[in-house]
């Protein structure tokens, strides 16, 4: 009997495959059995009702995409009345992604969504902090620690901190989140990018810049997962460019305890269910009995100089 289950702190997930925030919604239930997933992760919500960014909000680059959606949100009340009851029909744990422009507002929404039906809260600290010139909380260890402390005080639910690749202090930010009480890290969000139409000379996104996601991001997020898994003792959830079972396995070996699949769902909306069965097949082929045998199994004993060099160069 193959064991696909993984532990994220005190939470036990039946398998390590879950959606990345913003690439999953109730609509997915029209396409496949969403109870097959390890967890349900909602699109980020904010306290206030937000319209989002100007269009175009998306463009493609070679083999990947850029987006600048701007977190449109119908607010907390809509979420509690409509979204939580929908996911209550399912056994799979619900992870609510939240965001805010200041640490206090963040703590407030965190408290407001700490209600029955919610299993964990993913805190999108990769979004701009209006108290720090719009720099994302997770760009710096100090702002990460400050916001995570307030979030920790606001809820008893597991807190997953979603980190940004737009930092030169990956391990320090990860450690700051851990010491302030995060129960897990989600590594990572999209990377700030740009694309320009050479004929009109206009940026391809209405908001000028946006987040890169898809296979092009994978090596960067994978490197971050590796660094974070080495630096902290809480679980790391890998996220960035996962499209195939080989990608899933690579993240697990790097140290991820679970993975989030995002952009690949846009290319194939049923990809996550396929990845679950392919992961099972991979374990069988490799003669393994559980996913936990893969987690952090990287053979990097002789690479310590390389790691040191890379971190110094960061």
């Amino acid at each position: 009997m193959l064991d696909l289950s993984v532990n994220i702190g005190a939470m036990r997930l039946k398998n390590p495959i879950m959606p990345a925030s913003g690439t999953f919604s109730e609509d997915c239930a029209k396409l496949f059995d969403i109870d097959a997933l390890g967890a349900h992760v909602t699109k980020t919500i904010t306290r206030d009702i937000r319209g989002g960014n100007p269009t175009p909000r998306v463009c493609e680059v070679r083999g990947s995409m850029l987006n600048s959606i701007g977190i449109p949100s119908k607010g907390v009340d809509y979420f509690k009345t409509n979204v939580i009851p929908f996911y209550d029909q399912y056994q799979t744990p619900l992870v609510v992604s939240i965001s805010a422009g200041s640490a206090d507002e963040f703590a407030q929404i965190c408290e407001e969504v700490s209600v029955p039906g919610v299993a964990a809260i993913e805190v999108n600290i990769s979004c701009p902090n209006i108290e720090a010139d719009g720099k994302a909380f997770a760009m710096r260890p100090s702002t990460t620690e400050a916001v995570m402390r307030k979030l920790r005080a606001a809820t008893d639910l597991p807190l997953w901190a979603k980190l940004t690749p737009n930092t030169g202090e990956t391990t320090e930010v990860a450690q700051a989140a851990e010491s302030a009480g995060a129960d897990a890290l989600v590594v990572a969000n999209t990377m700030l990018s740009m694309a320009i139409d050479i004929h009109t000379r206009k940026p391809k996104l209405g908001n000028l810049m946006g987040g890169l996601s898809g296979p092009a991001l994978k090596p960067i997020a994978l490197r971050m997962v590796y660094q974070c898994a080495k630096a902290v003792s809480i679980p790391v959830i890998g996220c960035g460019g996962i499209a195939t079972v080989e990608d899933v396995v690579e993240y697990l070996i790097a140290g991820a305890s679970a993975v989030q699949v995002g952009t690949a769902t846009f290319i194939s909306p049923t990809v996550m269910v396929r990845l679950i069965s392919e992961l099972e097949a991979f374990l069988r082929t490799e003669g393994l009995s559980s996913v936990s045998e893969l987690i952090g199994s990287i053979r990097d004993e002789e690479a310590s100089d390389g790691v040191f060099f890379a971190e110094a160069a960061e």
Partner: peptide, 15 residues
Amino acid sequence: QQMACGVGMCQCCVR
């Protein structure tokens, strides 16, 4: 409108 997911999850294709 330019779309990504096409089924309602990503909020890219608003008008």
